[in-house]
């Protein structure tokens, strides 16, 4: 489903060159949740964005959804690839502030129309316990509701893989449990989840867990 091979990525920082990924290799299979944990600034988010086809690595190979390197695809093709098969969940939710819960869940339609999107959105609302909040805008939601909305949005197009960046970082234990439970359900249904977090506890639900430090994978 996903394979990274000896991927490196560095940035020019104020104090010179910063190596975010230093020869990272990993694989993610269908029906698997891979958790990568590590301290802040160790390169987890860079790894996630690079794996998702959004941040071109300096070297190494990325294979997403059995495709060849997404970075060899034209930009529009890469967008289509993400629109059809990839979902994102971020720590900061990234909901659109002027759209209601239901409208936010439906925003993937902007990139890829879906015939029964409305019905599926309603189903996700029910499944994630957002029935009473469909007409509310993000500012009127609790953090847990916001993350559940973001999760519903990621699940709308039935992606094959979800990239989750600290999805429970801002949540209380109960809401964190709900999010993890739904990610686990997604994995059970055959999806793949690459979850990066600095909470080692999140690894409890993972099929596999990796640790990262200074841009390198530490331990399988």
């Amino acid at each position: 489903m996903l394979a990274l091979e000896n991927v490196t990525k560095s940035f020019n920082g104020p104090k010179g060159k910063v190596t975010a990924l230093d020869g990272v290799s990993l694989t993610l299979r269908a029906g698997e949740m891979l958790v990568i944990s590590g301290p802040s600034g160790c390169g987890k988010s860079t790894l996630l964005l690079t794996a998702a086809g959004m941040l071109r690595p300096d070297s190494g190979n990325v294979r997403l959804l059995e495709q060849y390197d997404p970075y060899r695809l034209p930009a529009d093709e890469r967008c289509r690839l993400r629109a059809g098969s990839v979902g994102f969940v971020f720590q900061q939710f990234h909901l659109i502030p002027y759209l209601t819960v239901l409208e936010n869940i439906l925003t993937p339609l902007l990139s890829r129309p879906g015939e029964d999107a409305q019905r599926r959105a309603r189903a996700l609302v029910d499944r994630l316990g957002l029935q009473e909040r469909t007409d509310h805008v993000p500012a009127q939601l609790s953090t847990g509701e916001r993350q559940r909305t973001a999760l519903a949005r990621a699940l709308l197009h039935r992606p094959k893989i979800i990239f989750a960046d600290e999805p429970t970082g801002n949540l209380d234990e109960e809401n964190a449990g709900i999010v993890i439970e739904h990610l686990c359900n997604f994995v059970s249904a055959g999806g793949g989840v690459l979850l990066v977090t600095h909470h080692a506890k999140a690894a409890e639900h993972a099929n596999r867990a990796l640790k990262m430090k200074k841009g390198r994978i530490q331990k399988n």
Binding site: C79, A83, T107, P108
Partner: peptide, 14 residues
């Protein structure tokens, strides 16, 4: 932020 998430979801630059 809105542009970022839309682009991440596959909304093209066009």
């Amino acid at each position: 932020e809105e542009i970022g998430i839309l682009r991440a979801m596959g909304v093209s630059a066009k």
